[in-house]
Design a protein around this nucleic acid. Structure first.
Lengths: 252, 252
DNA sequence: TGTATAGTGCTGTATATACAGGCTGCACGT
DNA sequence: ACGTGCAGCCTGTATATACAGCACTATACA
Protein backbone atom coordinates (compact mmCIF):
# COMPACT_ATOMS: atom_id res chain seq x y z
CA UNK A 1 0.00 0.00 0.00
CA UNK A 2 1.16 3.48 -0.82
CA UNK A 3 1.18 5.93 2.06
CA UNK A 4 2.27 9.55 2.04
CA UNK A 5 4.60 8.92 4.91
CA UNK A 6 6.58 12.08 4.26
CA UNK A 7 3.56 14.34 4.82
CA UNK A 8 2.60 12.35 7.89
CA UNK A 9 6.10 12.69 9.29
CA UNK A 10 6.01 16.44 8.70
CA UNK A 11 2.70 16.76 10.53
CA UNK A 12 4.11 14.69 13.32
CA UNK A 13 7.23 16.82 13.66
CA UNK A 14 5.06 19.94 13.73
CA UNK A 15 3.43 18.76 16.94
CA UNK A 16 6.73 18.48 18.77
CA UNK A 17 8.39 21.08 20.93
CA UNK A 18 6.43 21.06 24.12
CA UNK A 19 6.52 18.14 26.47
CA UNK A 20 3.67 16.24 24.87
CA UNK A 21 4.33 12.50 24.94
CA UNK A 22 5.17 10.94 21.60
CA UNK A 23 2.30 8.45 21.71
CA UNK A 24 -0.08 11.37 22.33
CA UNK A 25 1.29 13.26 19.35
CA UNK A 26 0.83 10.20 17.13
CA UNK A 27 -2.76 9.88 18.32
CA UNK A 28 -3.42 13.51 17.48
CA UNK A 29 -1.88 13.38 14.03
CA UNK A 30 -3.85 10.29 13.09
CA UNK A 31 -6.99 11.54 14.78
CA UNK A 32 -6.75 14.84 12.89
CA UNK A 33 -6.53 13.04 9.55
CA UNK A 34 -9.60 11.03 10.41
CA UNK A 35 -11.61 13.98 11.69
CA UNK A 36 -10.79 16.05 8.62
CA UNK A 37 -11.86 13.21 6.37
CA UNK A 38 -8.42 12.80 4.83
CA UNK A 39 -8.68 9.23 5.96
CA UNK A 40 -12.25 8.07 5.53
CA UNK A 41 -14.29 5.27 7.04
CA UNK A 42 -12.87 1.89 6.30
CA UNK A 43 -9.55 3.21 5.04
CA UNK A 44 -6.54 1.19 5.95
CA UNK A 45 -4.07 2.90 8.24
CA UNK A 46 -0.34 2.55 7.74
CA UNK A 47 0.95 -0.56 9.49
CA UNK A 48 2.79 -0.26 12.75
CA UNK A 49 6.03 -0.98 10.93
CA UNK A 50 5.36 1.76 8.38
CA UNK A 51 4.66 4.26 11.14
CA UNK A 52 7.80 3.21 12.97
CA UNK A 53 10.01 3.88 9.98
CA UNK A 54 8.10 7.00 8.91
CA UNK A 55 8.07 8.71 12.29
CA UNK A 56 11.30 7.34 13.67
CA UNK A 57 9.87 6.03 16.91
CA UNK A 58 9.74 2.58 18.43
CA UNK A 59 7.01 0.11 17.66
CA UNK A 60 5.81 -0.01 21.26
CA UNK A 61 5.08 3.69 21.08
CA UNK A 62 3.16 3.35 17.84
CA UNK A 63 1.40 0.34 19.30
CA UNK A 64 0.27 2.29 22.33
CA UNK A 65 -1.06 5.13 20.19
CA UNK A 66 -3.01 2.77 17.94
CA UNK A 67 -4.27 0.72 20.88
CA UNK A 68 -5.63 3.78 22.63
CA UNK A 69 -7.24 5.00 19.42
CA UNK A 70 -8.87 1.60 19.11
CA UNK A 71 -10.02 1.71 22.74
CA UNK A 72 -11.58 5.06 22.03
CA UNK A 73 -13.43 3.67 19.05
CA UNK A 74 -11.66 5.83 16.49
CA UNK A 75 -10.09 2.92 14.68
CA UNK A 76 -10.63 -0.82 14.47
CA UNK A 77 -7.77 -3.28 14.52
CA UNK A 78 -7.58 -6.88 13.56
CA UNK A 79 -4.71 -9.21 14.16
CA UNK A 80 -3.07 -10.35 11.00
CA UNK A 81 -4.91 -7.80 8.90
CA UNK A 82 -4.27 -4.22 9.89
CA UNK A 83 -5.80 -1.09 11.36
CA UNK A 84 -8.77 0.67 9.79
CA UNK A 85 -10.74 3.85 10.36
CA UNK A 86 -13.84 2.90 12.33
CA UNK A 87 -17.32 3.55 11.09
CA UNK A 88 -18.50 6.79 12.66
CA UNK A 89 -21.89 5.52 13.71
CA UNK A 90 -22.27 7.96 16.51
CA UNK A 91 -20.13 9.67 19.01
CA UNK A 92 -19.91 8.15 22.44
CA UNK A 93 -22.42 9.58 24.91
CA UNK A 94 -19.82 11.62 26.72
CA UNK A 95 -18.35 12.94 23.53
CA UNK A 96 -21.66 13.94 22.09
CA UNK A 97 -22.56 15.82 25.21
CA UNK A 98 -19.37 17.72 24.90
CA UNK A 99 -19.52 18.77 21.32
CA UNK A 100 -22.95 19.37 19.98
CA UNK A 101 -21.69 21.64 17.21
CA UNK A 102 -19.62 18.88 15.66
CA UNK A 103 -22.49 16.45 15.98
CA UNK A 104 -24.97 18.73 14.25
CA UNK A 105 -22.57 19.37 11.40
CA UNK A 106 -21.86 15.70 11.09
CA UNK A 107 -25.53 15.13 10.49
CA UNK A 108 -25.41 17.66 7.68
CA UNK A 109 -27.21 20.49 9.42
CA UNK A 110 -26.32 23.99 10.42
CA UNK A 111 -25.45 24.69 14.03
CA UNK A 112 -26.08 28.07 15.58
CA UNK A 113 -26.48 29.47 19.07
CA UNK A 114 -28.37 32.25 20.76
CA UNK A 115 -27.12 33.87 23.92
CA UNK A 116 -30.04 34.23 26.30
CA UNK A 117 -28.31 35.72 29.27
CA UNK A 118 -24.85 36.42 30.57
CA UNK A 119 -24.20 37.78 34.00
CA UNK A 120 -22.39 37.47 37.26
CA UNK A 121 -24.74 36.24 39.94
CA UNK A 122 -24.65 35.62 43.64
CA UNK A 123 -23.40 32.16 44.47
CA UNK A 124 -26.05 31.65 47.14
CA UNK A 125 -27.58 28.22 47.14
CA UNK A 126 -25.61 27.28 44.08
CA UNK A 127 -23.30 24.28 44.20
CA UNK A 128 -20.42 26.71 44.33
CA UNK A 129 -21.28 28.24 47.66
CA UNK A 130 -20.40 25.14 49.65
CA UNK A 131 -17.54 23.84 47.63
CA UNK A 132 -15.47 26.81 46.59
CA UNK A 133 -14.58 30.04 48.22
CA UNK A 134 -16.44 32.37 45.92
CA UNK A 135 -19.57 34.42 46.45
CA UNK A 136 -20.05 35.24 42.76
CA UNK A 137 -20.48 32.95 39.78
CA UNK A 138 -20.49 33.60 36.07
CA UNK A 139 -23.63 32.28 34.49
CA UNK A 140 -24.45 31.97 30.82
CA UNK A 141 -27.52 30.54 29.17
CA UNK A 142 -27.28 29.56 25.53
CA UNK A 143 -29.76 27.89 23.19
CA UNK A 144 -28.30 25.61 20.51
CA UNK A 145 -30.10 25.28 17.19
CA UNK A 146 -30.00 22.63 14.52
CA UNK A 147 -30.97 24.65 11.48
CA UNK A 148 -33.88 26.58 13.01
CA UNK A 149 -34.95 24.11 15.66
CA UNK A 150 -33.83 24.47 19.25
CA UNK A 151 -32.19 21.24 20.32
CA UNK A 152 -30.34 22.07 23.50
CA UNK A 153 -30.37 24.53 26.34
CA UNK A 154 -27.00 25.12 27.91
CA UNK A 155 -26.89 26.62 31.38
CA UNK A 156 -23.33 27.15 32.49
CA UNK A 157 -21.92 28.22 35.83
CA UNK A 158 -18.23 29.03 36.04
CA UNK A 159 -16.14 29.83 39.07
CA UNK A 160 -14.56 33.26 38.39
CA UNK A 161 -11.42 32.21 40.22
CA UNK A 162 -10.50 30.03 37.26
CA UNK A 163 -11.15 32.60 34.55
CA UNK A 164 -8.07 34.61 33.61
CA UNK A 165 -8.37 38.38 33.67
CA UNK A 166 -8.27 38.91 29.94
CA UNK A 167 -11.25 36.60 29.46
CA UNK A 168 -13.45 37.96 32.20
CA UNK A 169 -15.13 40.32 29.75
CA UNK A 170 -16.44 37.52 27.60
CA UNK A 171 -16.37 34.26 29.41
CA UNK A 172 -18.75 32.57 27.02
CA UNK A 173 -16.34 32.54 24.14
CA UNK A 174 -14.58 29.48 25.45
CA UNK A 175 -15.77 26.11 26.58
CA UNK A 176 -14.60 24.28 29.66
CA UNK A 177 -13.15 21.63 27.41
CA UNK A 178 -11.31 23.79 24.97
CA UNK A 179 -9.94 26.09 27.55
CA UNK A 180 -10.21 24.97 31.13
CA UNK A 181 -8.55 21.65 30.63
CA UNK A 182 -5.49 23.49 29.47
CA UNK A 183 -5.38 26.30 31.97
CA UNK A 184 -6.68 24.45 34.99
CA UNK A 185 -5.85 20.78 35.50
CA UNK A 186 -9.15 19.04 36.14
CA UNK A 187 -8.97 16.25 38.66
CA UNK A 188 -12.55 15.04 38.56
CA UNK A 189 -15.52 15.15 36.25
CA UNK A 190 -18.99 14.02 37.23
CA UNK A 191 -21.90 13.40 34.96
CA UNK A 192 -25.52 13.04 35.96
CA UNK A 193 -28.25 12.22 33.47
CA UNK A 194 -31.90 12.58 34.36
CA UNK A 195 -35.26 12.60 32.65
CA UNK A 196 -37.23 15.65 33.72
CA UNK A 197 -40.13 17.83 32.71
CA UNK A 198 -38.91 21.26 31.66
CA UNK A 199 -39.62 24.35 33.67
CA UNK A 200 -41.85 26.89 31.98
CA UNK A 201 -38.82 28.99 31.19
CA UNK A 202 -36.95 26.07 29.69
CA UNK A 203 -39.96 25.04 27.63
CA UNK A 204 -40.30 28.55 26.27
CA UNK A 205 -36.64 28.78 25.32
CA UNK A 206 -36.70 25.39 23.63
CA UNK A 207 -40.07 25.97 21.99
CA UNK A 208 -41.62 22.81 23.38
CA UNK A 209 -44.70 21.95 25.38
CA UNK A 210 -44.28 21.83 29.17
CA UNK A 211 -45.30 18.18 29.28
CA UNK A 212 -42.64 17.03 26.84
CA UNK A 213 -39.95 15.10 28.71
CA UNK A 214 -36.37 16.30 28.48
CA UNK A 215 -33.01 14.70 28.92
CA UNK A 216 -30.98 16.69 31.39
CA UNK A 217 -27.24 16.26 31.61
CA UNK A 218 -25.26 17.93 34.34
CA UNK A 219 -21.50 17.93 34.11
CA UNK A 220 -19.44 19.19 37.03
CA UNK A 221 -15.70 19.60 36.88
CA UNK A 222 -13.29 20.00 39.73
CA UNK A 223 -9.71 21.15 39.87
CA UNK A 224 -7.50 20.45 42.83
CA UNK A 225 -8.55 23.82 44.25
CA UNK A 226 -12.29 23.26 44.03
CA UNK A 227 -15.35 23.28 41.82
CA UNK A 228 -14.57 24.84 38.46
CA UNK A 229 -17.81 24.67 36.53
CA UNK A 230 -21.24 23.15 36.36
CA UNK A 231 -22.83 22.81 32.95
CA UNK A 232 -26.44 21.76 32.67
CA UNK A 233 -27.68 20.68 29.27
CA UNK A 234 -31.39 20.21 28.62
CA UNK A 235 -32.53 18.43 25.48
CA UNK A 236 -36.10 17.76 24.37
CA UNK A 237 -36.55 14.02 24.42
CA UNK A 238 -38.34 14.00 21.11
CA UNK A 239 -35.65 15.93 19.30
CA UNK A 240 -32.42 14.53 20.53
CA UNK A 241 -30.94 11.59 22.23
CA UNK A 242 -27.62 10.35 23.38
CA UNK A 243 -26.14 7.72 21.22
CA UNK A 244 -23.08 5.67 21.74
CA UNK A 245 -21.54 2.73 20.08
CA UNK A 246 -18.31 0.94 20.54
CA UNK A 247 -16.61 -1.82 18.72
CA UNK A 248 -14.94 -4.78 20.28
CA UNK A 249 -11.83 -5.86 18.49
CA UNK A 250 -13.04 -9.39 17.90
CA UNK A 251 -13.43 -12.31 20.23
CA UNK A 252 -12.18 -12.01 23.75
CA UNK B 1 4.72 -0.65 53.40
CA UNK B 2 3.92 -4.23 54.20
CA UNK B 3 2.15 -6.16 51.49
CA UNK B 4 1.08 -9.80 51.52
CA UNK B 5 2.88 -10.40 48.27
CA UNK B 6 2.90 -14.16 48.74
CA UNK B 7 -0.90 -14.38 48.81
CA UNK B 8 -1.13 -12.04 45.86
CA UNK B 9 1.33 -14.17 43.91
CA UNK B 10 -0.69 -17.28 44.68
CA UNK B 11 -3.90 -15.65 43.47
CA UNK B 12 -2.08 -14.55 40.37
CA UNK B 13 -0.74 -18.02 39.61
CA UNK B 14 -4.21 -19.46 40.08
CA UNK B 15 -5.47 -17.41 37.13
CA UNK B 16 -2.91 -18.88 34.76
CA UNK B 17 -3.33 -21.85 32.47
CA UNK B 18 -5.49 -20.61 29.68
CA UNK B 19 -4.24 -18.09 27.18
CA UNK B 20 -5.27 -15.04 29.17
CA UNK B 21 -2.70 -12.26 28.81
CA UNK B 22 -0.60 -11.57 31.86
CA UNK B 23 -1.62 -7.92 32.11
CA UNK B 24 -5.26 -9.03 32.06
CA UNK B 25 -4.64 -11.50 34.86
CA UNK B 26 -3.00 -8.81 36.96
CA UNK B 27 -5.97 -6.54 36.36
CA UNK B 28 -8.34 -9.27 37.49
CA UNK B 29 -6.42 -10.17 40.62
CA UNK B 30 -6.20 -6.55 41.72
CA UNK B 31 -9.77 -5.82 40.64
CA UNK B 32 -11.04 -8.80 42.63
CA UNK B 33 -9.31 -7.57 45.79
CA UNK B 34 -10.90 -4.18 45.36
CA UNK B 35 -14.36 -5.50 44.57
CA UNK B 36 -14.30 -7.83 47.57
CA UNK B 37 -13.24 -4.98 49.81
CA UNK B 38 -9.95 -6.58 50.74
CA UNK B 39 -8.40 -3.39 49.49
CA UNK B 40 -10.65 -0.50 50.46
CA UNK B 41 -11.04 3.03 49.18
CA UNK B 42 -7.90 5.05 49.51
CA UNK B 43 -5.70 2.06 50.24
CA UNK B 44 -2.28 2.16 48.74
CA UNK B 45 -1.58 -0.51 46.14
CA UNK B 46 1.78 -2.25 45.99
CA UNK B 47 4.20 -0.25 43.89
CA UNK B 48 5.03 -1.34 40.39
CA UNK B 49 8.40 -2.59 41.61
CA UNK B 50 6.78 -4.65 44.38
CA UNK B 51 4.39 -6.22 41.90
CA UNK B 52 7.25 -6.95 39.52
CA UNK B 53 9.20 -8.88 42.13
CA UNK B 54 6.12 -10.52 43.66
CA UNK B 55 4.59 -11.74 40.42
CA UNK B 56 7.77 -12.29 38.45
CA UNK B 57 6.74 -10.24 35.43
CA UNK B 58 8.23 -7.21 33.79
CA UNK B 59 7.48 -3.69 34.90
CA UNK B 60 5.95 -2.74 31.55
CA UNK B 61 3.37 -5.47 32.02
CA UNK B 62 2.52 -4.30 35.52
CA UNK B 63 2.46 -0.76 34.22
CA UNK B 64 -0.05 -1.61 31.54
CA UNK B 65 -2.32 -3.38 34.00
CA UNK B 66 -2.27 -0.46 36.42
CA UNK B 67 -2.67 2.09 33.66
CA UNK B 68 -5.75 0.37 32.30
CA UNK B 69 -7.19 0.05 35.79
CA UNK B 70 -6.62 3.78 36.19
CA UNK B 71 -8.23 4.50 32.82
CA UNK B 72 -11.23 2.51 33.95
CA UNK B 73 -11.47 4.52 37.13
CA UNK B 74 -10.79 1.62 39.46
CA UNK B 75 -7.59 3.09 40.84
CA UNK B 76 -5.95 6.50 40.96
CA UNK B 77 -2.27 7.00 40.30
CA UNK B 78 0.02 9.87 41.05
CA UNK B 79 3.56 10.28 39.87
CA UNK B 80 6.04 10.14 42.69
CA UNK B 81 3.46 8.93 45.19
CA UNK B 82 1.86 5.65 44.24
CA UNK B 83 -1.35 3.93 43.19
CA UNK B 84 -4.48 4.00 45.31
CA UNK B 85 -7.92 2.45 45.25
CA UNK B 86 -10.29 5.04 43.80
CA UNK B 87 -13.27 6.34 45.68
CA UNK B 88 -16.35 4.50 44.50
CA UNK B 89 -18.56 7.54 44.17
CA UNK B 90 -20.83 6.03 41.60
CA UNK B 91 -20.60 3.57 38.83
CA UNK B 92 -20.03 4.93 35.38
CA UNK B 93 -23.19 5.36 33.35
CA UNK B 94 -22.56 2.27 31.30
CA UNK B 95 -21.69 0.22 34.32
CA UNK B 96 -24.75 1.29 36.23
CA UNK B 97 -26.98 0.44 33.34
CA UNK B 98 -25.50 -2.98 33.32
CA UNK B 99 -25.79 -3.92 36.92
CA UNK B 100 -28.68 -2.43 38.76
CA UNK B 101 -28.65 -5.14 41.43
CA UNK B 102 -25.16 -4.21 42.56
CA UNK B 103 -26.07 -0.54 42.54
CA UNK B 104 -29.13 -1.02 44.70
CA UNK B 105 -27.23 -3.10 47.20
CA UNK B 106 -24.42 -0.58 47.23
CA UNK B 107 -26.94 2.01 48.33
CA UNK B 108 -27.93 -0.25 51.20
CA UNK B 109 -31.27 -1.37 49.87
CA UNK B 110 -32.78 -4.67 48.90
CA UNK B 111 -33.01 -5.55 45.24
CA UNK B 112 -35.71 -7.83 43.95
CA UNK B 113 -37.33 -8.57 40.62
CA UNK B 114 -40.71 -9.61 39.34
CA UNK B 115 -41.11 -11.49 36.11
CA UNK B 116 -43.98 -9.95 34.19
CA UNK B 117 -43.90 -12.01 31.06
CA UNK B 118 -41.76 -14.55 29.33
CA UNK B 119 -42.54 -15.85 25.89
CA UNK B 120 -41.36 -16.53 22.39
CA UNK B 121 -42.86 -14.03 20.00
CA UNK B 122 -42.94 -13.41 16.29
CA UNK B 123 -40.04 -11.30 15.17
CA UNK B 124 -42.21 -9.21 12.88
CA UNK B 125 -41.39 -5.53 12.96
CA UNK B 126 -38.86 -6.10 15.67
CA UNK B 127 -35.26 -5.05 15.07
CA UNK B 128 -34.42 -8.70 14.68
CA UNK B 129 -36.45 -9.28 11.56
CA UNK B 130 -34.20 -7.25 9.32
CA UNK B 131 -30.88 -7.96 10.89
CA UNK B 132 -30.85 -11.62 11.77
CA UNK B 133 -32.25 -14.66 10.16
CA UNK B 134 -34.80 -15.53 12.79
CA UNK B 135 -38.57 -15.32 12.79
CA UNK B 136 -38.94 -15.86 16.54
CA UNK B 137 -37.53 -13.88 19.45
CA UNK B 138 -37.40 -14.58 23.15
CA UNK B 139 -38.90 -11.75 25.08
CA UNK B 140 -38.85 -11.21 28.82
CA UNK B 141 -40.21 -8.31 30.83
CA UNK B 142 -38.93 -7.84 34.35
CA UNK B 143 -39.57 -5.15 36.95
CA UNK B 144 -36.72 -4.31 39.29
CA UNK B 145 -37.48 -3.14 42.80
CA UNK B 146 -35.47 -1.20 45.33
CA UNK B 147 -37.03 -2.42 48.55
CA UNK B 148 -40.69 -2.19 47.53
CA UNK B 149 -40.45 0.57 44.95
CA UNK B 150 -40.26 -0.20 41.26
CA UNK B 151 -37.22 1.53 39.83
CA UNK B 152 -36.67 -0.08 36.48
CA UNK B 153 -38.54 -1.92 33.77
CA UNK B 154 -36.41 -4.31 31.77
CA UNK B 155 -37.72 -5.41 28.39
CA UNK B 156 -35.35 -7.90 26.81
CA UNK B 157 -35.32 -9.42 23.35
CA UNK B 158 -32.89 -12.24 22.67
CA UNK B 159 -32.13 -13.97 19.41
CA UNK B 160 -32.80 -17.70 20.00
CA UNK B 161 -29.95 -18.61 17.70
CA UNK B 162 -27.52 -17.57 20.41
CA UNK B 163 -29.19 -19.36 23.28
CA UNK B 164 -27.79 -22.84 23.85
CA UNK B 165 -30.26 -25.70 23.98
CA UNK B 166 -29.99 -26.38 27.68
CA UNK B 167 -30.92 -22.76 28.47
CA UNK B 168 -33.85 -22.42 26.13
CA UNK B 169 -36.25 -23.47 28.87
CA UNK B 170 -35.31 -20.56 31.09
CA UNK B 171 -33.54 -17.91 29.15
CA UNK B 172 -34.11 -15.24 31.76
CA UNK B 173 -31.75 -16.76 34.26
CA UNK B 174 -28.73 -15.28 32.60
CA UNK B 175 -27.84 -11.79 31.50
CA UNK B 176 -26.22 -10.86 28.22
CA UNK B 177 -23.23 -9.64 30.17
CA UNK B 178 -22.71 -12.59 32.42
CA UNK B 179 -23.30 -15.15 29.78
CA UNK B 180 -23.41 -13.95 26.21
CA UNK B 181 -20.06 -12.23 26.29
CA UNK B 182 -18.52 -15.57 27.11
CA UNK B 183 -20.43 -17.81 24.75
CA UNK B 184 -20.82 -15.41 21.85
CA UNK B 185 -18.07 -12.93 21.07
CA UNK B 186 -19.76 -9.55 20.84
CA UNK B 187 -18.32 -7.28 18.19
CA UNK B 188 -20.46 -4.20 18.73
CA UNK B 189 -22.55 -2.64 21.45
CA UNK B 190 -24.80 0.34 20.92
CA UNK B 191 -26.42 2.46 23.55
CA UNK B 192 -29.24 4.93 23.05
CA UNK B 193 -30.55 7.08 25.87
CA UNK B 194 -33.79 8.99 25.53
CA UNK B 195 -36.23 10.88 27.69
CA UNK B 196 -39.76 9.62 27.04
CA UNK B 197 -43.20 9.51 28.53
CA UNK B 198 -44.12 5.99 29.56
CA UNK B 199 -46.78 4.01 27.78
CA UNK B 200 -49.82 3.20 29.87
CA UNK B 201 -48.56 -0.33 30.33
CA UNK B 202 -45.13 0.86 31.43
CA UNK B 203 -46.63 3.37 33.84
CA UNK B 204 -48.78 0.67 35.38
CA UNK B 205 -45.87 -1.71 35.83
CA UNK B 206 -43.69 0.99 37.36
CA UNK B 207 -46.50 2.43 39.46
CA UNK B 208 -46.07 5.96 38.17
CA UNK B 209 -48.29 8.56 36.56
CA UNK B 210 -48.40 8.57 32.74
CA UNK B 211 -47.06 12.13 32.63
CA UNK B 212 -43.93 11.38 34.63
CA UNK B 213 -40.89 11.43 32.34
CA UNK B 214 -38.73 8.35 32.12
CA UNK B 215 -35.17 7.68 31.15
CA UNK B 216 -35.07 4.99 28.52
CA UNK B 217 -31.89 3.15 27.75
CA UNK B 218 -31.69 0.77 24.85
CA UNK B 219 -28.67 -1.46 24.54
CA UNK B 220 -28.18 -3.55 21.41
CA UNK B 221 -25.43 -6.09 21.06
CA UNK B 222 -24.14 -7.73 17.91
CA UNK B 223 -21.98 -10.74 17.33
CA UNK B 224 -20.24 -11.34 14.05
CA UNK B 225 -23.25 -13.38 12.96
CA UNK B 226 -25.86 -10.73 13.68
CA UNK B 227 -28.01 -9.05 16.28
CA UNK B 228 -27.83 -10.92 19.58
CA UNK B 229 -30.04 -8.96 21.92
CA UNK B 230 -31.85 -5.71 22.51
CA UNK B 231 -32.43 -4.66 26.09
CA UNK B 232 -34.66 -1.69 26.82
CA UNK B 233 -34.52 -0.26 30.32
CA UNK B 234 -37.10 2.27 31.46
CA UNK B 235 -36.51 4.22 34.67
CA UNK B 236 -38.80 6.81 36.23
CA UNK B 237 -36.96 10.11 36.08
CA UNK B 238 -37.92 11.02 39.60
CA UNK B 239 -36.67 7.79 41.10
CA UNK B 240 -33.44 7.09 39.37
CA UNK B 241 -30.74 8.66 37.34
CA UNK B 242 -27.54 7.73 35.68
CA UNK B 243 -24.48 8.87 37.48
CA UNK B 244 -20.91 8.74 36.43
CA UNK B 245 -17.69 10.13 37.71
CA UNK B 246 -14.16 9.72 36.67
CA UNK B 247 -10.90 10.88 38.02
CA UNK B 248 -8.09 12.35 36.07
CA UNK B 249 -4.70 11.31 37.30
CA UNK B 250 -3.49 14.83 37.91
CA UNK B 251 -2.51 17.58 35.52
CA UNK B 252 -2.55 16.93 31.83
C1' DT C 1 -7.24 -28.40 -11.83
C1' DG C 2 -7.35 -28.81 -7.08
C1' DT C 3 -5.12 -29.14 -2.71
C1' DA C 4 -1.55 -28.76 0.52
C1' DT C 5 2.35 -26.06 2.24
C1' DA C 6 5.53 -22.53 2.95
C1' DG C 7 6.19 -17.69 3.19
C1' DT C 8 5.10 -12.93 4.28
C1' DG C 9 2.97 -9.17 6.64
C1' DC C 10 0.34 -7.78 10.37
C1' DT C 11 -1.14 -7.20 15.27
C1' DG C 12 -0.86 -9.00 20.30
C1' DT C 13 1.92 -9.62 24.02
C1' DA C 14 6.05 -9.80 27.09
C1' DT C 15 10.76 -8.59 28.58
C1' DA C 16 14.82 -5.81 29.80
C1' DT C 17 16.47 -1.37 30.08
C1' DA C 18 16.80 3.54 30.50
C1' DC C 19 15.93 8.24 31.66
C1' DA C 20 12.81 12.00 33.19
C1' DG C 21 10.28 14.17 36.73
C1' DG C 22 7.29 14.49 40.96
C1' DC C 23 7.02 13.64 46.03
C1' DT C 24 8.56 12.46 50.80
C1' DG C 25 11.31 12.08 54.57
C1' DC C 26 15.65 12.21 56.67
C1' DA C 27 20.07 14.31 57.67
C1' DC C 28 22.63 18.04 58.08
C1' DG C 29 23.56 22.72 58.99
C1' DT C 30 22.33 27.03 61.01
C1' DA D 1 14.19 24.37 67.09
C1' DC D 2 13.76 25.02 62.47
C1' DG D 3 14.28 24.81 57.56
C1' DT D 4 16.78 23.61 53.65
C1' DG D 5 18.65 20.41 50.49
C1' DC D 6 19.25 16.03 48.74
C1' DA D 7 18.75 10.98 48.37
C1' DG D 8 15.63 7.58 47.34
C1' DC D 9 11.14 5.90 45.98
C1' DC D 10 7.50 6.28 42.82
C1' DT D 11 5.14 6.72 38.30
C1' DG D 12 5.48 8.39 33.20
C1' DT D 13 7.47 7.60 29.03
C1' DA D 14 10.44 5.67 25.31
C1' DT D 15 13.40 2.20 23.10
C1' DA D 16 15.05 -2.30 21.37
C1' DT D 17 13.98 -6.91 20.98
C1' DA D 18 11.53 -11.17 20.77
C1' DC D 19 8.09 -14.59 20.00
C1' DA D 20 3.24 -16.01 19.22
C1' DG D 21 -0.85 -16.13 16.46
C1' DC D 22 -3.83 -14.78 12.63
C1' DA D 23 -4.78 -13.80 7.59
C1' DC D 24 -3.67 -13.89 3.16
C1' DT D 25 -0.84 -15.29 -0.96
C1' DA D 26 2.07 -17.68 -3.86
C1' DT D 27 4.27 -21.71 -4.88
C1' DA D 28 4.82 -26.68 -5.20
C1' DC D 29 2.92 -30.99 -5.79
C1' DA D 30 -0.43 -34.61 -6.90
Amino acid sequence: MLVDTAALAREFEATGGDGTPVYERIKRVIGARIRTGKWAEGDRLPSEHQLVTALGVSRMTVNRALRELADGGTIVRSMGVGSFVAETKAASPLLEVRNIADEVQRRGHRHSTRLVSLAAEDADDRPFAADSMTDRVYRSVIVHFEDDTAIQLEDRLVNPAFVPEYLQQDFTSFTPNDYLTRVVPLVRTELVIEAVLPTDEQAALLGIEPHEPCLQIRRSTWSAEGLVSVVRLTQPGARSRLEGGFETSGAR
